[in-house]
Simulated scan of single mutants.
Amino acid sequence: MLSLSRTRFAIVKKHLSSKSIGGIKVEIITKPLYQYKDISKSAMTKIVNELAQIGCEVIFKEDVYQKFGSIDERIVWYGNIHLLGYGQETETIMRIDSIEVAEELRQTLKQEKQ
C-alpha cells in the first residue's frame, strides 16, 4: 500500500517551488489518479493540485514503472524511492547530472505505450 507522507512532500515541494519560480521547467510524471487505491487517491489529488499551484507540470501516464525525477531536462534523481510518498529505510536514489541520461529516460516513457 502506498502511504503518502505529507512531511516528505513538504520537503520536495519546497525544492520544486524554488526551481519553478527560478524559471526551471519541472515535469512530474505519475500514474493517473484513478489507478491509486482509494486511501491514496485523495492524498495524491491534493499533491497534484499543490504541484500545479507552484508551477510544476503534472503528466499522467498509465503503467509507469520507473522511479526517477528529472529537473530542467538535465538533473536526474534515479532509484527505488517514491519521491512523493512514504519513505522506507531500504530506499536508494542517485543524482545524475546529464542531459543525455535525462533525455534517454524521457524517451523510455514515450516508448512504453507504443
Results as ranks from 00 to 15, higher is better:
Ser5Met: 05
Ser5Glu: 05
Arg6Lys: 12
Arg6Gln: 09
Arg6Ile: 01
Thr7Asn: 07
Arg8Phe: 01
Arg8Gly: 03
Phe9Pro: 09
Ala10Glu: 12
Ala10Asp: 13
Ile11Met: 05
Ile11Asn: 00
Ile11Pro: 00
Val12Phe: 11
Val12Arg: 01
Lys13Glu: 15
Lys13Met: 09
Lys14Asn: 11
Lys14Met: 06
Lys14Val: 04
Lys14His: 13
Lys14Cys: 08
His15Arg: 08
His15Lys: 08
His15Gly: 09
Leu16Met: 13
Leu16Thr: 07
Leu16Ile: 10
Ser17Gln: 14
Ser17Lys: 10
Ser18His: 15
Ser18Met: 14
Ser18Glu: 15
Ser18Phe: 11
Lys19Leu: 15
Lys19Tyr: 15
Lys19His: 12
Ile21Cys: 10
Gly22Met: 08
Gly23His: 02
Ile24Cys: 09
Ile24Asp: 12
Ile24Asn: 10
Ile24Ala: 14
Ile24Glu: 13
Lys25Cys: 05
Lys25Ile: 13
Lys25Leu: 14
Lys25Thr: 13
Val26Asn: 04
Ile28Ser: 04
Ile28Val: 14
Ile28Glu: 08
Ile29Gly: 03
Ile29Tyr: 09
Ile29Trp: 11
Thr30Tyr: 04
Thr30Trp: 08
Lys31Ile: 13
Lys31Ser: 05
Pro32Gln: 01
Pro32Gly: 01
Leu33Phe: 02
Leu33Gly: 00
Gln35Val: 01
Lys37Phe: 00
Lys37Tyr: 00
Lys37Ala: 01
Lys37Glu: 04
Asp38Asn: 04
Ser40Glu: 09
Ser40Asn: 09
Ser40Thr: 07
Ser40Gly: 05
Lys41Gly: 03
Lys41His: 00
Lys41Phe: 01
Lys41Gln: 01
Ser42Glu: 12
Ser42Arg: 11
Ala43Gln: 03
Ala43Asp: 10
Ala43Glu: 01
Ala43Cys: 03
Thr45Asp: 01
Thr45Ser: 12
Thr45Leu: 05
Lys46Arg: 14
Ile47Ala: 07
Val48Glu: 03
Asn49Cys: 07
Glu50Ile: 07
Glu50Gly: 03
Leu51Phe: 09
Leu51Arg: 07
Leu51Asn: 07
Ala52Cys: 15
Ala52Gln: 15
Ala52Glu: 15
Gln53Val: 14
Gln53Pro: 07
Gln53Cys: 14
Ile54Met: 11
Gly55Met: 08
Gly55Ile: 11
